[in-house]
């Protein structure tokens, strides 16, 4: 039951982009086309699921026993950067087709603050190993969902006559605001 609450909570009620304001850069940057948005969403889900497991093991089997929790930020960001590189290399060898689909998005993930944010949050919330992985995966799915919806909206916006002053980022932000209001409706769910 706890797990179910985590899943629904992180996908809808506490959507990572629209309610926690994490991962805004890719949310605004790669939400021009539905296809690329879906690719980015898949790549983020993939990396976040793996990184949450690695971060969990690192926190409770390396940092805590050694008493160097204050090194968290440095260690986590380096591990995530290295992990992204590794995922890229491994994926290229094992599944070239998946690499073709996700390839260009992988390097961008290092700078996605949602990945580091989730790593820090799951330590803060003291989740166990299963909960951590489920939490990170559902957060990433929430990110993918927001990204795809936003891309759909922006594809429509392209065809409408937007006033010159608000073209580009401002109208995207205002649209995201309305979307965030819609997602607030889910907050009663959990």
């Amino acid at each position: 039951m706890e797990i179910f609450a985590i899943i629904i909570g992180s996908i809808f009620a506490n959507n990572v982009v629209l309610s926690q304001s994490l991962g805004i850069c890719p949310f605004l940057g790669v939400s021009n086309k539905v296809n690329t948005a879906a690719g980015m969403g898949a790549a983020v889900t993939f990396v976040m699921a793996i990184s949450s497991l690695v971060v969990y093991l690192l926190q409770y089997y390396v940092l805590v026993p050694l008493g160097i929790e204050y090194m968290q930020t440095i260690v986590f960001i380096l591990v995530i950067a290295a992990l992204v590189q590794m995922v890229e290399i491994v994926l290229k060898k094992i599944s070239p087709s998946l690499y073709q689909a996700l390839g260009i998005f992988l390097p961008l993930i290092t700078t996605n603050c949602a990945v580091l944010g989730v790593a820090l949050l799951l330590v803060q919330k003291e989740y166990n190993m299963l909960e951590s992985v489920v939490y990170a995966t559902s957060i990433a799915l929430g990110f993918a969902l927001a990204l795809v919806i936003m891309a759909g909206l922006r594809e429509r916006l392209e065809l409408t006559g937007v006033p010159k002053g608000v073209k580009g980022v401002p109208i995207a932000l205002i649209t995201a605001g309305i979307l965030a209001m819609a997602f607030m409706g889910f907050s009663g769910l959990v």
Partner: peptide, 22 residues
């Protein structure tokens, strides 16, 4: 209250960006 919540952040930044541009 909406302006303190996350939708308000998007709205305020969006409109301020327009003002700054102008």
């Amino acid at each position: 209250l909406i302006f303190v919540l996350s939708p308000g952040a998007f709205f305020v930044l969006g409109y301020l960006m327009v003002v700054f541009r102008k």
